[in-house]
């Protein structure tokens, strides 16, 4: 162990050194950035750390690196405000956004963060035209997740046309309470899945609270040659017997889960998943 003639200092000197050394408020900037990056969701910085002292505040506000991955898990107007502030602070460097949007804030987001690779949208209503326009600007986008408060007959059409090179897509449809908002045509239930067009790089597709039809399933399988994972939770709608051709197409997907039809008519019914492959344990950012 260490040997030193000057190992023991006076108690007084040790104390003053310790007090001086423990000035957490003036941690060097890059150490503080390391710490902030490990805090997780943005609200940890915005509601806590950055208001603890001026030095911390300045790092939070002035360091775009902290806002490359924005994760705001609040779905209220304050969530929208936090998202906007975070996007501003990223100064164009944001690569992943997960948080609430409305139409205005989505437009602002794509204009302020053109390098987004991953976009997870929750809360609010965004029309399919606005969504399409926004997605067209995100040329680097690989991963899209939408939890929509309402459904649109043109949802898939907008996504496929705007971003045919997506690798990962996940859509959560409205729950029972919101299902009948706005429209009552039959395509309403499946986001216009029949309009699904070529997604040549799509590897992972997940649909929740979804009503899958035979035709819709065919549309997916015919248009996504590289699909490795297909998970659909919800129920079958207008479902016909699978013919041999469709079964063969299904067999090409390594990891497949489809909703079990059963005898239930409830929209909210979740059956046992039916399919080949194992359920995914993929973590979604």
């Amino acid at each position: 162990m260490p040997s030193s003639s000057s190992r023991r200092r006076s108690h007084k000197k040790r104390c003053s050194l310790t007090m001086e050394a423990r000035d957490w408020a003036s941690l060097p900037r890059d150490i503080l950035v390391d710490v902030f990056l490990k805090l997780g969701p943005c609200r940890e910085i915005m509601r806590g750390a950055e208001r603890a002292c001026t030095a911390w505040r300045r790092v939070a506000v002035d360091e775009p690196l902290l806002w490359r991955r924005i994760d705001i898990n609040a779905g209220s107007s304050s969530g929208l405000a936090m998202a906007r502030a975070a996007v501003d602070r990223s100064r164009g460097q944001c690569e992943a956004f997960s948080g609430p949007v409305d139409e205005d804030s989505l437009i602002y987001l794509v204009e302020s963060a053109p390098s987004l690779k991953s976009l997870h949208l929750s809360y609010g209503q965004v029309g399919s035209e606005i969504l399409k326009m926004a997605l067209e600007k995100l040329t680097l986008l690989e991963d899209l997740e939408i939890s929509t408060a309402y459904s649109s007959a043109n949802l898939f059409k907008s996504i496929c046309q705007a971003r045919p090179h997506l690798e990962k897509l996940r859509v959560t449809f409205p729950d029972d309470d919101n299902k009948f908002w706005g429209s009552c045509d039959s395509e309403f239930y499946d986001g216009g899945l029949r309009e699904f067009s070529t997604m040549c790089e799509l590897r992972s597709l997940e649909l929740f609270e979804f009503e899958l039809s035979t035709e819709g399933l065919k549309a997916i399988l015919d248009n996504c040659p590289l699909l490795e994972l297909l998970h659909v939770f919800g129920s079958f709608f207008d479902f016909e017997e699978m013919d041999e051709e469709l079964e063969l197409k299904c067999a090409r997907v390594k990891n497949l889960i489809l909703p079990f039809d059963g005898d239930e008519d409830d929209y909210g019914y979740y059956g046992e998943p039916w399919g080949w492959g194992q359920s995914s344990e993929d973590e979604f950012y």
């Binding site: 805090l39 806590g48 208001r51 603890a52 002292c53």
Partner: peptide, 18 residues
Amino acid sequence: ADMIKGKSPMEIRRTLGF
């Protein structure tokens, strides 16, 4: 980060003795 996670600004100040 774990020491300050979930804490209010005031609690952070107290915890770290600002």
